[in-house]
Structure formats: C-alpha cells, structure tokens
Simulated assay, not measured.
Amino acid sequence: MAGDLDNFYLKQPEPTKSCLLALRTIILNQDKNITAEWKYRMPMFCYKGKMLCYLWVHKTLHQPYLGIVDGKLIDHPALIMEKRARMKIMLFDANVDLPLADIEDILSKALQIAILKH
C-alpha cells in the first residue's frame, strides 16, 4: 500500500527521515526496473518483482540501515551480517553525509546478483 509506504518515512524523526528518503532516491536511481513496494510491513525495493533490498531502523542502535536481501553473497567491508542467514545490512549515522560510493558499489553488486537470478 502506498499509504503505509509513505507513512513509514513520514513518521520517522529527523534526521532519520531525511536519511531514509535520500537512500530511497539513491536506490531508485540505480536502475529503471527497481520499484518501491510495501512488503512484510517495511519499505522493500524490488528488481523486476524480485526482492533486492529494504530500508529499516535498527532496533537497538536506532540507526537507519540498508538491508541487502542476498547480502551474504556480497563481500564489502561496510556490510555486516549480525545474526542473519541471508541478508547483510549497512548502518548509517543520520547526522553524517551518506557514503555514496559505498552505497552505489553495494547496490551495483546486489543488482548484478538479481540480474543473474532473474
């Protein structure tokens, strides 16, 4: 639902809201086949209908993060696994400029995996 998707961003406090909105724009600008959807009660980004990544706020650290669905297949120092089997996340400090080169590198690798799986 678009309402739930919009509300997710709108209910976030600043600067988390701005960070998440910037990340949404960066993700959507990676490829015209990436769509923003509301799945599993979170903002999910899909490539040609297949889950690619998502945005969320870490429960204990209270930091926004980018979750990569097939993150276990990506080796990048900015990605952490925590206690996940398949996904890795990239945490952000909402008070600091986003590391655009790292984000785009990770998204590019995630897209390559998605294209191969599609």
Rank of each mutant, 00 (worst) to 15 (best):
A2N: 08
D4H: 08
D4C: 12
D4K: 07
L5F: 08
D6Q: 03
N7M: 06
N7E: 06
Y9N: 02
Y9K: 01
L10R: 03
L10Y: 13
K11N: 03
K11F: 06
Q12R: 08
Q12T: 04
Q12E: 04
P13M: 05
E14D: 02
E14I: 01
E14H: 10
T16K: 09
T16I: 03
K17A: 13
K17G: 03
C19N: 02
A22R: 05
A22S: 03
A22E: 05
L23A: 09
L23E: 04
L23Q: 03
I26T: 03
I27N: 01
I27E: 01
I27D: 02
I27C: 00
L28R: 05
N29R: 07
N29D: 10
Q30Y: 08
Q30T: 06
D31S: 07
D31R: 14
D31F: 10
D31V: 14
K32T: 15
K32S: 15
K32M: 04
I34R: 10
T35W: 10
A36H: 02
A36E: 14
E37Y: 13
E37A: 10
K39W: 12
Y40E: 15
Y40V: 12
R41L: 12
M42V: 01
P43S: 14
P43I: 14
M44E: 06
M44R: 06
F45Q: 04
Y47H: 07
Y47T: 01
G49I: 13
G49C: 12
M51F: 15
L52W: 10
C53A: 08
C53T: 00
Y54A: 14
L55S: 06
L55D: 07
L55A: 07
W56F: 12
W56V: 01
V57T: 13
V57Y: 08
H58P: 10
K59N: 12
T60I: 05
L61M: 11
Q63D: 02
P64G: 01
G67H: 05
V69H: 01
V69I: 07
D70C: 11
G71K: 04
I74M: 05
I74E: 02
D75L: 15
D75R: 14
H76C: 03
A78D: 02
L79M: 11
L79D: 09
I80E: 14
I80M: 10
M81V: 11
M81C: 13
E82R: 10
E82Y: 14
K83V: 12
K83S: 09
K83L: 11
K83Y: 09
R84F: 05
R84A: 15
A85I: 04
M87T: 03
K88F: 07
I89T: 08
I89R: 09
I89F: 04
M90K: 05
L91K: 00
L91H: 10
F92Y: 05
D93W: 07
A94P: 09
N95I: 15
N95L: 11
N95K: 07
V96D: 05
V96Y: 12
D97G: 00
L98D: 06
L98S: 00
L98V: 01
P99I: 00
L100M: 00
L100G: 11
A101P: 12
A101S: 12
I103A: 00
I103F: 03
E104S: 09
D105M: 13
D105W: 00
D105E: 14
D105Q: 15
I106M: 07
I106D: 00
L107S: 09
S108I: 11
K109P: 00
A110G: 05
A110I: 01
L111I: 02
Q112H: 15
A114F: 06
K117H: 08
H118C: 10
H118R: 12
